[in-house]
Amino acid sequence: MNRTRRNVIAGASIAVLAAAGLGYEGWRHLAKGYPPTPYDDLLSLLPDREPAKQVGRAFLTANSGFVPARAAGALRQRIAGRPLSTVLQDELAQGDIIEAGHWLLPQTLVGLCALAAKS
C-alpha cells in the first residue's frame, strides 16, 4: 500500500529550517566593514554580502568565464537606478532566472552575488 509515494514515512526526519540569521530585518543592522571596490554602488544593493558571496561562489564554480568589470557594466545598465526589488520582479515576470548552486534566482541577483564573490 503506498499511501505516500515513498516507502519511508514522510516526516520522519523533520528538520525545520530554523532561521537564526534569516530575518531580513536582522542583517540590515549588521554593518560590516569591507575594503572599497569599483563595484560598491552595486554591492551596496545586496542585503548582506556574506551570504551573497556564498551564492556567488556557487555560481562561479559553474561559470568560470565571469568577468567582473564587464558584468558590472551590464548590471548597471540593467538596474538603471531602479530599486533592486523592482528590477528583480521585472526579471521574474520575464522569466530571466538562472541557477546558482542549483538554486533558481533572478539573473541580476546572481550577477550581484558573483560580483560580491569576486570582490
Binding site: 526526519s13 529550517l17 532561521a19 526589488s85
Partner: peptide, 26 residues
C-alpha cells in the same frame, strides 16, 4: 514530500533572495 534541512549554501540563497525581495523568511 517531507521537511528537509538546508545546507549553508541553501541558507545563504534563502537569505539573499528573500532579503533582496524584501520578504521576511525567518
Amino acid at each position: 514530500e517531507q521537511h528537509v534541512g538546508l545546507d549553508a549554501l541553501g541558507q545563504a540563497a534563502v537569505e539573499t533572495a528573500s532579503g533582496a525581495l524584501g520578504i521576511n523568511a525567518s
